[in-house]
Structure formats: C-alpha cells, structure tokens
Design a protein around this nucleic acid. Structure first.
Lengths: 191, 191
DNA sequence: TTCTCGATACCGACTGTTCGGTATGTCGCC
DNA sequence: GGCGACATACCGAACAGTCGGTATCGAGAA
C-alpha cells in the first residue's frame, strides 16, 4: 500500500520534530512540510495533532508490552527473567530514543482520556515488573527492607533518564550499557 | 518590600500552573489571574514568559549548588560526603517537587541562550558529583568496571524521576526515601 | 470494451481564536 | 514634579483545524 508510506512519513517527521523542538513548538505545517505531504493528507489519516502524538506512544507501548509478554512467557527462572526484562527495556528504549524523548516530555500535553490510556498501559507494564520482583523476594533473592514501589521506580528511573543523557554517537555501547545498568540495579536489590 | 510579595505570588502561581498544565498550555493571563495581579505587573518584573520559567530554574539551581558547596566544604570523608550529597539532593528535590516537574518537562522550551545557561549550571553540579566518585574510586571505595558517566547518570536518574512518581501524600516518607534511594545507589557502586 | 458511479486519497486557501507582548495611562509617594 | 509600580485596552502573528474542491481507481452495468 502506498498509504502506509504516507502515514510512516508523517509519523517519522513528527517524532523527529517533536523530539528536537518539543510538541508545542512544532506546528502541523512544519510536520507536513518535513514529511513532504500536505495538511489535507495528514488530517485524512490523523484526527488531530493530539492523535499524532498518541500514535507515537501507541507504537512504543505496544512493542514493549509485546516483548515483556514474550520474555515472561519463556518461563525461565525469576532471576533470569528479571534480568532479561531489564536488558530488553533498556535496549528498546535506546532503539526508540527520540520516541522516549517525546514521550517523557509531552505526555502531559495529551487530552485527558488519552493520557489516562497511556498511564493505564504503563501501569500494566509496571505491575508485571513489580510482580516479578515480588516473586524474587519470596524466593529470597531480593531485599525486602525497601518498599517494592521504590525498587520499581528505581529501575524505571534509569530507563526514563536515558533520553536525557545517552547519545548513540557517544562512547557507550547500547548492549554494554544495558548490561551495566541492569547490573547496577540487580546488585542494589540483592538480598 | 511589598514588591517581593508580588514577585513571589507570580512565581508561585506560575510554578503551580506550569507543573499541572505544562508551560505551553498555560497562558500569561492565567498566571496573573491566579496570582491576583495584572499583566502589567508581571511584565514590570519579568521580561517575558520565558524569563518567568527561567527564574524558576534559577532558584532551584542556586539552592542546590549552595547546598553542594556547603556539604563538600565540611571536609568529611569521601564516603560520608557523597552520602550527604545524595541524601540532600533527593530531599531538596522532594521539597521542590513541582519545580522539578516543570524543570524536566519544560527546559527545552527555554530560549537557546537560557537553555545553555541551565545546562552549564547543571553540568557544574554533575562535575563536582563525578569528581567525588572519582576520588572514591581512587580510594578503592567504588567500582571502576562501569564508566563514571554511567554511574553519575544512574544516580541522577532517580532524582529526575522523582517528580514522575513520588507523591508527598503517599506512603513514602521524604527522609526515609532519600536514605533508601541513596543506599540503593551506594550499594550498587561499591567496589 | 466502455461508461458511470461511488469511494478513497488527497490538496491548499481560508478562518476563528488564542496569546505573548506593548503602548498609554493613572496613582501615590518621595 | 517626576519616578516607580502597577492597570488596561489593544495589536499582530501564529496556528489548529476546516471545507470545498480534484484526481485516481475499482466494480459493475450496458
């Protein structure tokens, strides 16, 4: 289909501009010009500028949830599963660094219902993560002197912060970094 | 001075609105109405909306830099100094939670020069922090198998992320949380 | 094969409104 | 009488979204 190309072009341009200029500072006109299409085309495929932003999140959230389910589904040990989940979410966050930038900067610009939806989806992810830690705690693997919510937040803070300092052109390698951050986390929560 | 009250009222209203609605979604009109003053008053004390945002950062950055210098100036051991710095920055970040929200969400909305200035100031802080870790590494206290930049980012990610999940009304106590997060960090970087 | 018709995929000038910023004025105080 | 501290009406630009159009195409009737 030729349509998918148009949609992709628009999405790509939007992510690019949103991540460098911010959502509010980017006009629809800029996006369509960068994508090489017209406003009419954009409003044919997207309901609103808001909708465009949401679609960026949609894609990321779906992908990460998918990965999570796949990894948990493997049925490995708790320790191995948690490690794999950590590494994966860090790696995919690096793969989608611009999306992450947009995400953390501009979720609050979404309309109420959409913001709720995003929050709901993220919480689902966090809940699975938290239950993994809980299982590990029951197995005596992880410390219990710090509230689980703090442990979870402690991990996701790294993921969140990536878009604020990591540069693919920098010295850090993606795979290595994912292992290092995961290791820092796992060492910290060890019983 | 009565003026300081007006300035404070405006700043308070701005932080409040910026943190709940975002910078771009908050009009100058809303701010002055919430502060109980007029546009004229605001533009008498602030150059622009941008200036208003910057002043919020100014205050936070100055305070944290001040604290940092005081703590380092005490001349305690490296381990103790680092611990104190960590606890302090977490605690003050909690004290200035709305400011933090605004900060991390809207720095990119600042004008180029001001953004540069903010980045410069933050880097200064990070550099002092990094040199503390370096000193600790030389003393054999902290691990050296992970790049220092990663260790630094790992810590500041927690500080950064606070405004995304912590609620003063929630079950976590400020002082306790600061200790817990600091502990997680220090355990992770131990040699 | 040709012609029609509906539908999908766009096009781009236009509009209503919002909002940052300003110009001009007023009022009290030194 | 002039200066600092505001008040208020107003301006002009930017911008999201609209709307009346056109082009292309596939299916079915003739």
């Amino acid at each position: 289909m030729a349509t998918s190309s148009v949609v992709d072009d628009i999405t790509r341009a939007a992510v690019d501009l949103f991540s460098t200029q911010g959502y509010a500072n980017t006009s629809v006109q800029q996006i369509v010009e960068a994508a090489g299409v017209t406003k009419g085309a954009m409003y044919h495929y997207f309901e609103s500028k808001d909708d465009l932003l949401f679609s960026v999140y949609e894609r990321m959230l779906s992908l990460q949830t998918e990965h999570l389910e796949e990894i948990v589904g493997r049925g490995a040990s708790t320790a191995q599963t948690l490690r794999d989940v950590c590494v994966d979410v860090i790696e995919t966050s690096i793969d989608f660094l611009p999306e992450g930038t947009v995400f953390f900067r501009s979720v609050h610009m979404l309309s109420e219902p959409r913001q709720k939806e995003v929050t709901r989806r993220r919480r689902q992810y966090h809940d699975v993560f938290a239950s993994l830690i809980e299982r590990g705690q029951e197995e005596g693997l992880y410390r219990t002197d710090v509230p689980r919510a703090v442990l979870v937040a402690h991990f996701f803070s790294d993921v969140h912060y990536l878009s604020n300092w990591y540069s693919p052109e920098g010295p850090e390698d993606k795979v290595l970094l994912a292992q290092q951050l995961t290791d820092l986390f796992l060492v910290a929560i060890k019983a």
